[in-house]
Nucleic acid binder design. Structure first.
Lengths: 117, 117
DNA sequence: CAGCGGCATCGACACAGGTCAATATAGCAC
DNA sequence: GTGCTATATTGACCTGTGTCGATGCCGCTG
């Protein structure tokens, strides 16, 4: 998927809503911890049973957060035996990062202020 | 400000909440449009009167969204005459992007999956 | 077949947050 | 001073959502 350029044209309403929907998926402490835990997990994947304890939330709540991340395309799910393994989609996070700061350089702003009028 | 590494150690609760607070500031369609409009504005700054019409929201609502961005450090405010001029802080957005995808390369994931799981 | 473990869904609750109308504040013109 | 313009704040409403307990579904075990 290719989002419609945060910093080029003045973002339309629907484009802004689509981008905001994905950002809202990661704008939650529990889901940020889930992303961090999944990424740090051995093999780059983790099942729900390994995620409930570190978060200190109930199992249904963890499942809910994982579904939000799944619907946003941040993670993928694969069922093996009785367990559901979640895995990150790094391209999605990279694409999101690109939209926030296309240049990616903290030292060279994408749009420097005009200095001589 | 330096946030505590999304993808290294398994993010603690308070660290996740701090990061989520800043992400929540930009995870809103109106505020994304504001960021886009301010960045595209001449001189890199815009006053409230120029932002109300494109957003199609009331003036108090636009002021509210600008305050959220201001409190999150996404924009700065400077008053001249009767107008309040808002300007982006590109470092803040870049720092946020770095946290989401430290590598920044969509083609080279930060943590490749081990194959002998 | 019955039983059990892992995960998802449902229903309900409480709180956060986006929106507006009304009002307040600050600076300029007269 | 009064009045006007630009912006910020307040109060209220209503939707969205994070949370849990209870329950349902699925696959494995015996």
């Amino acid at each position: 998927m290719c989002w419609p350029t945060l910093s080029e044209a003045p973002l339309g309403r629907s484009a802004a809503e689509a981008l905001a929907a994905v950002l809202r998926a990661v704008a939650d402490p529990a889901r940020l911890q889930l992303v961090s835990l999944i990424q740090a997990a051995r093999g780059g994947e983790a099942c729900v049973c390994d995620l409930v304890a570190p978060l200190g939330l109930s199992q249904p709540t963890v499942s809910h957060h994982l579904k939000v991340l799944l619907d946003a395309g941040i993670v993928t799910r694969s069922r093996r035996r009785n367990w559901a393994y979640y895995r990150l989609v790094p391209e999605r996070l990279s694409a999101l990062a690109q939209l926030l700061a296309p240049s990616g350089d903290p030292g060279s702003p994408a749009r420097p202020a005009v200095r001589s009028g």
